[in-house]
Design a binder for these strands. Structure first.
Lengths: 199, 199
DNA sequence: TGTACATCAGTGAACGCGCGTTCACTGATGTAC
DNA sequence: TGTACATCAGTGAACGCGCGTTCACTGATGTAC
């Protein structure tokens, strides 16, 4: 057996990504040190060369999720300057993100963050809050530019916005990936758009 | 130690309720046979007199959740005949339900139903679908009575409706129960109402 | 350019804990006589 | 009304499995000379 050695930094990235993939495909119970190691092509105990323990691997997964969310916001900011268009694109991106990374809802609702370690829960709260703030910023910008009605709180809009995707995402998975997310999102967006757009 | 014997039916109810409470307070990892037994006041192995195994206890929890949801729909149907008012009341009831039973999102997203046993996942899908159908029925009724605009699909409205609650519920928990769910729901409902109401 | 050495990623065996489940038993409860 | 018996809920010890983690080791890699 040829033993290949790689830098800790490379391994950390590989391990975090492998962990995220495992959670996406098999849920939190699929996130075992052994499974991560197998996926990376290494023996379980080798994981401890790069992470202090399983908990730290999970923290790295939170980092990945955080980066994905922030990345989507930055991407739509570059794609267009129109606030309404930014929201529409972000909606589509978020839908894709959750589809590709089913890990996200699973991690958010897992015992490990939802119920366990208070620090991790706070961290997840920070991630979600940051994301909502970004959405709120887009809305506020739209209000200032008189494109979005300004008798509504940007934060409230942001929360509703996120709600547009969550339920379809759940239905999509529960239905065995049969639920038509695109169609639902399209319909919901149409209604949502009329609602908040300045007439 | 005085040994008290109770009917299987009574015990099954006690066990299911204890299990639901445990998940609400400690998450899915708190749902151990030992913990359930302790809560009921019995030794772990006694659980097996009333359930074939832990999986069947979880199934009983699904039953409870299903009944709670259906119960809310039936309740608002009795409270008023006005479709719009029914939706408003259901929204409030659902918010309370999730607050009191944090088990609901945790169970829905748990590996046990979200990823594991396909039968259980299908069952959860049935529960959610039934609930959404009920909401859709209320919407359709409103459309037929010309109180809700009929250029929108009742099902799409139902999904959006559920989305109004889900995100606030998550934020409420992640924030350490600091997020003001009532305020968000109130604002969101106001916007949602204007949107779907026939003008 | 080649060699000796320090560093550290990777290995494999072993551990200990939590937890679901089994099983032979005990003794409370309700019923038939 | 009282007694014998069948039923079955409750007990406690024991098991086996999965899994996170530890530890002494091996040997690949890069560097100093």
């Amino acid at each position: 057996m040829s033993i290949e050695k790689l830098d800790t930094q490379i391994r950390q990235n590989q391990i975090a990504q492998a962990a995220l993939d495992l959670v996406s495909s098999q849920g939190m119970k699929g996130l075992s040190v052994a499974a991560v190691a197998r996926k990376v092509g290494v023996v379980p105990s080798a994981i401890y060369r790069h992470f202090k323990g399983k908990d730290h691997v999970l923290d790295a997964v939170l980092d990945l999720i955080s980066h994905r969310l922030i990345g989507n916001v930055m991407a739509v900011r570059e794609e267009t300057a129109d606030p309404m268009e930014r929201l529409r694109l972000l909606l589509a991106r978020h839908a894709h993100l959750i589809r590709d990374n089913q890990a996200i809802p699973r991690v958010v609702f897992s015992d490990e963050v939802y119920g366990g370690n208070p620090g991790r829960k706070a961290r997840m709260h920070g991630i979600v809050s940051t994301y909502l703030s970004s959405v709120g910023d887009i809305v506020r910008d739209g209000q200032e530019r008189r494109m979005i009605r300004n008798d509504v709180d940007p934060g409230a809009i942001a929360v509703m916005f996120l709600g547009l995707i969550q339920t379809p995402a759940i239905l999509w998975h529960l239905s065995g990936e049969n639920f038509d997310v695109s169609k639902q999102i399209e319909r919901a967006w149409k209604i949502f758009r009329e609602t908040i757009e300045k007439s």
